[in-house]
Design a protein around this nucleic acid. Structure first.
Lengths: 343, 343
DNA sequence: GTGAAAGCGCTAACAG
DNA sequence: CTGTTAGCGCTTTCAC
């Protein structure tokens, strides 16, 4: 194995100490360790062996300062309009997981920033100007559209998961939330539901569009169906309490709920069950996202699917292109309806 | 807000450009921007204003190289014995969220590494020697006990979430899995269950101890209860398929299941429901972790609670102490049983 | 209170 | 193929 743990003189601290030991110059060591072929393969291997033996690895900080490449991508999760929302929100995490897969695959490290923008309006500038990052991907726009727009003006390697507004400058990849909303409500209507409710925090850009799509679907249907709006909180705890209260207060004739996320849908499912109301018989529920947990609920969730893995891949490739200096358009993906058991 | 976007000459690239602009030396700018009081408050404010106006921020990479402090903590998730396990595993994510809270609060950034140790046995050394980190916290030991032990020998600022073995060197904080296993099985026995099953991947150190605790509880009880072992996979997809197959194949007389994690329990709950078996009437289920989702299932999960938030806090404070050079003992937390509906 | 100068550890011309 | 040199951008003595 890594063996021979003897009374080594002392740890090698840098490239020139190793150079001295090897009887060569620092430059040569640098080249050898980088695996460059401009160096005699004999000495290269000798130096590499020496480095391994002494457990020496070049200081990345120095290397990165020198080359101007950090090898690090910042991943920022803006907890804009709701401070208590936890970073462990399943959607964020699923997206983060896929981003980590994609980014590490191409050799980048991830630097995580959990941002509460209320700390000031220069939070994004601070991140991109830190000199620590080759690029930034934001998971969600929260209510920070203007800040993002302003930063994107001067900082190219930035991509954002979220919704595209006409005329916007920053590069987003996301799902067409309006269409998603239509899909959900049309399905509810097709199931014969006419007294609908919308559960979601409309302060978020995407959620607002899901609601707009819902309204449009109702208008187009000519069914005269109604839609009541119930804003939810984003933190698990508050969300549950809010939904419970809403469920108790709302019109008992409500027979269809469009939850703006699977997490909301899941909580609603359970709270309905507690109240003895059957899903989908008494009230049908459609979620949004199609997170892995959508298949683990009882009943399984009917939901509007966003291709999160695909979105993450697109975020990564778009970012890489922008780092390389290319211009990249935004990507709007079309959601699909996944019909399971809840509606 | 940040206003006056005029034809600014060109962006300020570094501290000396700003110095020239301000008619002072680089040193003074550095001191001013760092808010040091060794500098005339007049000039300090003048320089700060100038920096703000030009949107200049000192390069962190350089600063950190110079000071030898990176301000970054590495968070590593070892996906040791099961490659397909996704970083979005709810336990990891919950822990990560709490770590992010605690670390950002004291001014550290997080660098995320998702590691598949099979890539070589020096993955931890590579991370630790990168020169990019002030410290490292690992979420879980996976099957990498020896590697961790070896690294901890020479690298002090390392703390690990996991299980403590007698005589180990590295600093862990975790829950007593053996006791947790006892708790779970005792509860099942107290509910009159005698034909038990254990669902979990015993290759992980912690899971192995949960199983050992289970066996011990049965032996102590003198009930003559039985315990069948069903190894599960760690990836959501494979786990579901595996559990489904196990459920179909297993002794129909099984009346109690101890799932080694809430995620496993949740999947089992649904699969049981699909097969028309009632929980807890036909078969009782106890989970492990007490993740937020444990309260969102139908029925709600009875589970062995780990204090994840408290654990994260302890990980952070232990790490900070070790960074400061202090010696810190491991922490073993005692799990508690949370009785809800599933058992 | 401020400037000058040295240097953190590494890499990349440029010679030879 | 290898050594020398000159920084990357910042911080920090040490003088003044």
């Amino acid at each position: 194995m890594s063996g021979e743990i003897d009374a080594k003189p002392r740890r090698i601290r840098n490239i020139s100490e190793l150079a001295k030991l090897a009887g060569v110059s620092a430059g040569t060591v640098s080249r050898a360790l980088a695996g460059k072929d401009l160096v005699n393969s004999q000495t290269r291997e000798r130096i590499q062996a020496l480095a391994r033996e002494h457990g020496f690895r070049p200081n990345q900080m120095a290397s990165r300062l020198r080359t101007g490449q950090t090898g690090v991508i910042g991943v920022v999760i803006p907890l804009g309009h709701e401070k208590k929302q936890h970073i462990s929100d399943p959607f964020f995490m699923t997206m983060l997981g896929h981003l980590a897969d994609g980014l590490t695959e191409v050799g980048y490290d991830l630097m995580l920033s959990r941002v509460i923008p209320s700390d000031g309006d220069d939070w994004l500038e601070r991140i991109v100007d830190s000199g620590m990052l080759d690029g930034v991907v934001m998971i969600g726009q929260s209510d920070q559209f203007d800040t993002i727009e302003r930063t994107a003006e001067v900082y190219r390697p930035l991509v954002v998961w979220g919704t595209r507004r006409s005329g916007q400058r920053h590069c987003v990849v996301g799902t067409d939330s309006f269409v998603g909303g239509e899909l959900a409500v049309r399905h509810l209507l097709a199931r014969g539901r006419r007294k609908l409710a919308f559960f979601g925090d409309t302060k978020g850009l995407e959620i607002e569009q899901r609601l707009a799509g819902s309204r449009s679907a109702i208008a187009q249907s000519g069914t005269g169906a109604t839609l009541d709006i119930y804003p939810t909180h984003l933190s698990q705890q508050e969300m549950s309490e809010q939904i419970a209260a809403d469920l108790d207060a709302m019109d008992p004739a409500i027979d269809g709920i469009f939850a703006a996320s699977d997490v909301i849908a899941m909580g609603t499912l359970r709270l309905l069950h507690e109240r003895g109301r059957k899903v989908p018989e008494d009230v049908a529920i459609v979620g949004f996202d199609d997170l892995p947990l959508a298949t683990q609920t009882v009943p399984q969730l009917t939901t509007v699917r966003q291709d999160i893995a695909g979105g993450a891949r697109t975020l990564v490739t778009s970012l890489l292109k922008r780092i390389a200096g290319d211009e990249v358009p935004s990507t709007v993906m079309t959601p699909t309806l996944v019909v399971r058991e809840s509606a």
